[in-house]
């Protein structure tokens, strides 16, 4: 198992290096730069800027310098935000995005999984139709429409909640709802189809035949087996939702990390583009790794060993 973990870590590092290199290349191919502006700068001033930020160095040197700093955990200064570092931006933004993501995913699991299970058990009856109708709705309505609609109804029309900003539990309600809609819908559909497959298996008939109550059969045999694909999805989901959403953070004025994924690219804020990409990639890989470890608990057939050892 130790060998397996080491191997996985090595693969992750290699993948991360590839991601850094690709991102670095693509962002330098894109026209413009962090100091492009509508009012064109005099050439001498551009020279000063290029000298201060080492833009005059050949690209390979900028690249190796960046990797060197990265190894020491330094993601560099932001070019757009003069007095902020990329480490600082992630340190400020990630806890906020993650808190919101934690609320959204809890909501998605608490509502989505039971909805999927009930749908499967009451297949083609009204609870199934209702929850699948809502799931399809949650699936197809874009986040910015849902967020705008929530703000319009709950804050503007009914005056129940503050429209935006971050700091109080009441301010977290609408963004958490908006953020949870898609994963909730996905989890419900995934759980439903996975349950339906399991319910048709022979071992379910055996379980019932040996006299288990319906409740025990469903809980112990059906749900436990049906949840495997949901677990695989959770890794990606946690990584995506915890690192923030541009749309939700922009609309609800939330100081999270999600806004930087989109904004930094428009700003050509090179270090921020690289920093948040690396952070997201590393987080995603870590989550997938944890998911694989989780399989060990859920499915006794899975053994985390190298193929050679088998």
């Amino acid at each position: 198992m130790a060998r397996y973990i080491l191997r996985r870590l090595a693969t992750m590092l290699a993948a991360l290096w590839l991601i850094i290199t690709l991102t670095f290349t693509i962002m330098h191919i894109a026209p413009g730069g962090p100091f492009a502006s509508e009012k064109k700068l005099p050439p001498a001033i551009l020279d000063n800027i290029n000298a201060r930020y080492h833009f005059n160095d050949p690209l390979w040197k900028q690249y190796t310098d960046y990797l060197g700093n990265l190894l020491q955990g330094d993601l560099g200064p932001s070019f757009k935000y003069e007095n902020r570092t990329v480490n600082g931006i992630i340190k400020d933004g990630f806890p906020v995005s993650a808190t919101l993501g934690c609320l959204a995913i809890s909501l998605a699991i608490l509502v989505g999984l039971p909805a999927g299970i009930i749908s499967a058990l009451r297949r083609n009856r009204w609870p199934d139709y209702l929850s699948m109708f809502l799931a399809n709705l949650g699936f197809s309505v874009p986040g910015f429409i849902l967020a705008g609609l929530l703000m319009y109804v709950l804050a503007y029309r009914l005056d129940l909640l503050p429209p935006a900003m971050w700091g109080t539990p009441r301010q977290a309600v609408m963004p958490a709802l908006a953020l949870s809609a898609l994963p909730m819908a996905f989890l419900a559909r995934l759980m439903r189809s996975s349950m339906l497959e399991v319910l048709g298996q022979d071992y379910m008939r055996t379980a019932r035949a040996k006299g288990l109550s319906e409740r025990l059969a469903v809980w112990r045999h059906a749900v436990r087996n049906a949840i495997t694909p949901v677990i695989s999805y959770l890794g990606t989901l946690v990584a995506t939702i915890f690192t923030g959403s541009f749309v939700v953070e922009n609309i609800f004025a939330i100081p999270g990390l999600g806004r930087y994924y989109v904004a930094s690219i428009g700003d050509r804020d090179y270090t921020v583009i690289l920093g948040v990409t690396i952070f997201y990639a590393a987080f995603l890989m870590l989550m997938n790794f944890l998911v694989d470890l989780a399989y060990m608990f859920i499915d006794p057939r899975v053994r985390l060993v190298d193929r050679k050892e088998v």
């Binding site: 993650a98 934690c102 977290a172 946690v238």
Partner: peptide, 13 residues
Amino acid sequence: MALILTGCGGPSG
């Protein structure tokens, strides 16, 4: 997975 990296701290008013 959901908690470790976040501290899920409640926002202050």
